[in-house]
Design a protein around this nucleic acid. Structure first.
Lengths: 243, 243
DNA sequence: CAGTGTGAGCTAACGGTGTTCACTAAAGCG
DNA sequence: CGCTTTAGTGAACACCGTTAGCTCACACTG
């Protein structure tokens, strides 16, 4: 009953989000479309900001599901392909859900205090990759730099990060956490760039650049890269199969 | 006369931007603060969107100036330090001008057609780094991968990118452009992450992570990294001087 | 069954927004 | 002086978020 209405509110808001952009989501419009009036929505949601946060949280779960589905779509033992598939699913979801991605990964507007549901969902999303990375670590795919080579202040921050994200710091060296952070920053950067269209004036298709970054990142991680449509035979550089 | 008024409008808008966030910029408020009424502003600016775009364009110029100043602050011949200083200036400006950075590098809201002044200014900003990178290239600091190793589709996009940005494609191999793009994506990613505070729940000071990325990127470019406060003596890893 | 809550949803209102239109007043110019 | 251009205003329209007070239907209780 009540749950269903809240769900419908969020769904309507999300539709408005994709159709009119983040600024186009308004309580009044959502209410109108549901055959209600704006004040009625206050029975379900404490305000427009909270509604956006709730929608954002749901989106993180949806993205996590999409990534998990891609992960589950390849044989369990094939770690390489699982990672490849998961990361491509992340980008694919991002590029096909630009407005959603914008409110999830774009600049924050609300004060940090009241976005906890969203960061909670974001953490669940991150966990998808953490477990895959953990497996990579267990398989000792790449030479891990010595923990002593990571400076004290960075180590402190990385430990804090790992703790908060539920990575077992006693099992995993800080150097590994740094590698993880570095890889994530790289992929986040290229996807942000693409979705926010900051290169659109100069580069119309960002796929090759993303694939190149993916190749570099994964190679550095000891993971075998295979080009997008490939069944997994040749470990060539991105799109080299066309040469 | 007229120029001055437009300038005052943009300055007022910018102040509102930093004080109340991107959504807090309103024509009415700007006009009120200037002792005018909102419709009067339409003599100078075709609407709120265009005002934001104009402000964004100015911000790119300001950021470019800040970077250029940092660049000019070190001896001309010291390419390493110039790059280091420029990139740190970029991050420094970003972190001290979060709201401004958000509308410059965050998700786009206006259709691409009418943001040309901003992308024009953005290109001027990029040029600062292009010339430094060009110099690095001329000094043959790092082994350049073979052009044949970059896939066709990526090469096409990179050439388009280089052309639009005014990099002489006949002088510079595509592989170099790829290296440049990769480096930029990395630094953009880490700074975005910091300014948008996507890790703030888990990592409170992003300086060490940025410096670590800077170290990695520059090392890969054959540039000698020196820790922030350092005069330039030891080429240690970030913050290692404290050990 | 009568009475009493309780909660969903409404109307009205306040203050804010972007934008348009018709208008005034002043300045420049032949 | 008369005319044109231009800066700026006031009123209006259509939105927005949010609050306060209200109605009405349902459920529960004596």
């Amino acid at each position: 009953m009540r749950e269903a209405t809240l769900l419908e509110i969020k769904e309507t808001a999300r539709r408005h989000l994709v159709e009119h952009g983040p600024a186009g989501v308004s309580l009044r419009a959502v209410a109108r479309e549901m055959g209600m009036t704006a004040p009625g929505l206050y029975r379900y949601v404490p305000g427009i900001d909270a509604l956006l946060v709730a929608v954002t949280a749901d989106l993180f779960d949806e993205l996590a599901s999409a990534v998990a589905a891609a992960d589950a779509g390849v044989p369990d033992h094939d770690t390489d392909q699982r990672i490849l598939s998961s990361l491509r699913a992340f980008r694919s979801w991002a590029t096909t859900h630009r407005a959603e991605f914008a409110i999830m990964f774009g600049p924050r507007t609300a004060p940090e205090a009241d976005i906890t549901p969203a960061v909670e969902a974001g953490r669940r999303f991150g966990a998808t990759f953490f477990t895959l990375f953990d497996r990579l670590l267990a398989e000792r795919r790449f030479p891990l730099p010595d923990d002593a080579s990571v400076p004290d202040d960075l180590a402190r921050e990385l430990r804090s990060f790992a703790d908060t994200c539920g990575i077992w710091t006693d099992h995993i060296p800080v150097a590994a956490v740094q590698v993880l952070a570095s890889c994530w920053v790289r992929l986040y950067g290229v996807v942000c760039m693409e979705v926010f269209e900051h290169m659109h004036f100069a580069m119309h298709d960002m796929t090759p650049l993303f694939e190149a970054e993916l190749f570099d990142v994964l190679t550095g991680l000891g993971v075998r890269y295979t080009p997008p449509g490939d069944g997994g035979g040749t470990a060539a550089r991105p799109s080299d199969s066309s040469d």
